[in-house]
Design a protein around this nucleic acid. Sequence first.
DNA 1: AATCCACAGGAAGATTAGGATA
DNA 2: TATCCTAATCTTCCTGTGGATT
Length: 431
Amino acid sequence: MPEPEDTSTGLFIKYLSNNRIFRDREVLRHSYRPQILPHRQPQIDNVASILAPSLRNETPSNILIYGKTGTGKTASVRYVGSELEKASSKMGTTCRIVHLNCEVIDTQYRVLAQIAKCIDDGIDDAASDKTKSHIPMTGWPTDQVYAELKNQLDAGGGVLVIVLDEIDKLVKKSGDDTLYNLTRINSDLKNSKVSIIGISNDLSFKDFLDPRVLSSLSEEEIVFPPYNAPQLVDILTQRATGAFLDGAIAEGVIPLCAALAAQEHGDARRALDLLRISGELADRDESRQVSEEHVKQAQAKIETDSMIECIATLPTQSKLILFSMLTLEQMDQNIFTSGEVSRVYQDIAPSIQLDILTHRRITDLISELNMLGVINTRVVSRGRYGRTKEMWFDANTNKIREVVLKDPRLNGLKDLDINQMEAKWLKTWFR
DNA sequence: AATCCACAGGAAGATTAGGATA
DNA sequence: TATCCTAATCTTCCTGTGGATT
């Protein structure tokens, strides 16, 4: 009997020892907060100038911040926030920042409770046992939470800046009551002040807001434009020095990552992912350098990964349609018409107790698959033989098949006898 | 030029699921 | 808990159509 420890160490050790690429790959993760944010100085200065009055114990204007994902909104605000707290403790004023991600904290109750909790934690060391967290995670009526929050704020004094990240999610899920109450809270406070920073990547969310809330929330608006390719190069270069060992990246790698990500909305997060995955690929095949080839592989990997993800979340019916197309493909057809697909579909649907959708519906689902980029379609006219829509895959069909069969309701199709089906179809309608 | 295939895809109504509300 | 509302899903019915064949 071999010692289990030995084998497992042996299993992993070889992957740990050849470390020729990364110095610290955490630097490339989304959660990493760099000290310097290239090309965001104007926005940072802007936020700072708006928040500055809080150091004189005056209420700063509320701010709304817009920008696509990966444009540095959150990072910039966090940076300004931490600088502000530093400055305030140096100057002896009370000035606190609470950062909430509304994708996670998405109800009025939880927002209020979370704010209260954050203030509490901050005061904790000063007045340790007196102000303990009063508000339970659930159970109180909302107005009581609101009142309790006011008490805590007034007790603490100073200025509180509330950052509502992904504020559009909050509005979509639970309406604008929360925002209404928060913007109004200043008039109920005697001893302290509140200012709100809303961060959104959806410009249209304003439409859901009460005009009064909107006007008070957007006293100041700041837009974070997407990065262009040269700017992304700067960002990647900065991170790469921390993340990679010297000389681990080939010449054109960073510009390539930047260019690919710039095409795709100038998303810095995407660019960093690309660089990190390129690095991981290089690491895995024991290269000593990340090459442009690795970047291309990484790009392909990200693409298929997101497609796999997309397919996995498709409704069962769409998956069955995909499976029908896969079946046709196994019968060495590369291009299928909507008629063929729906005939195959209608034949296998009953065998797994799925109700049969009409042809009309199937055409809609097929166009949907086309929109998602899982398949390609094209309308063709074959003269006397009618007008139809042709479709084909251009991705790895084995991967797709694998994912489709993971659906528990399609499990029975795993060992479908293609030959038998083909023979049957040939007899009835094929060609 | 007329015909006619094999569908595309619009319109509108029916059904269903989920969620709010009383 | 029953009921109502709404959005999403699905069906029915329909008109339109490019071009090989007649």
